[in-house]
């Protein structure tokens, strides 16, 4: 029970607000990290601590994207596929991750290690393509870095299980000059990213014109409708 295992932390959280209900998000994070995901019992427990009808808490869990009411992997990989990331390699990154992990979006690997999700803007557009692993930012994740990233994350699985998926102990990462994943140096002065000078522009290829009979068979492998 949360109240027995985390009483001091819960009381600190409650003391910050003039209304107990305000503590629902931090308590759900705590419950999520304690139980791995938000089981029905965990949601009811949070409701009981706050003296709320359980439906109020179920509603909150359903509304916010960072709460999981089903089991997720040790590492939840959330890849931003928004503008501008999607034009700077996010789709290639997602393909590489799907191929390496053998899963599609919203699925978890059979060993329970990784869950893959597409998410909306992560507010790190200058470091595209970008993903979060259990809310640890990892910047500049080009497809070539996927294997190094997955190896690194697998090696830190025990640590991830201890910290949970809610980012209560999050750290941010980038790639060092030696190609290794390194913690962000927050003490360093701000420097914008610099892409290497590129070759002169290649002319755009003309639009492919569909063949006259191309519409006879609508492709079966077309992307699923987002809805």
């Amino acid at each position: 029970m949360l109240l027995e295992t985390h009483r001091a932390e819960i009381e600190t959280i409650l003391s910050r607000y003039d209304s107990r209900r305000s503590a629902v998000l931090p308590l759900l994070y705590l419950a999520q990290d304690t139980y791995g995901y938000l089981t029905e019992a965990a949601i009811r427990e949070v409701a009981a601590i706050l003296g709320l009808p359980p439906t109020d808490v179920f509603e909150v869990v359903g509304f916010y994207t960072l709460f999981y009411n089903r089991p997720v992997g040790t590492w939840v990989l959330q890849v931003c596929d928004d503008v501008p990331c999607c034009y700077l390699g996010a789709e290639e990154l997602i393909s590489a991750l799907k191929q390496s992990l053998g899963i599609a979006e919203e699925q978890t690997t059979s060993d329970g290690m990784f869950t893959l999700q597409r998410v909306k803007c992560l507010a790190a557009c200058d470091r595209a393509p970008v993903l979060q692993a259990n809310l640890d930012y990892v910047y500049d994740v080009t497809p070539e870095r996927v294997n190094a990233l997955l190896t690194n994350l697998r090696a830190r699985a025990a640590e991830a299980r201890q910290r949970g998926v809610s980012g209560r102990f999050a750290e941010d990462f980038e790639w060092g000059p030696d190609g290794a994943l390194t913690l962000i140096d927050r003490a360093a002065p701000y420097r914008p990213r610099q892409f290497p000078a590129a070759s002169p522009p290649a002319p755009l290829e003309p639009e492919p014109v569909p063949e006259a009979d191309a519409g006879h068979d609508r492709p079966t492998d077309r992307k699923a409708s987002p809805l």
Partner: peptide, 13 residues
């Protein structure tokens, strides 16, 4: 200004 997209130096200016 947060500059992003197809520029050589995306970043905050």
């Amino acid at each position: 200004f947060s500059l992003s997209g197809h520029v050589n130096r995306p970043g905050n200016y």
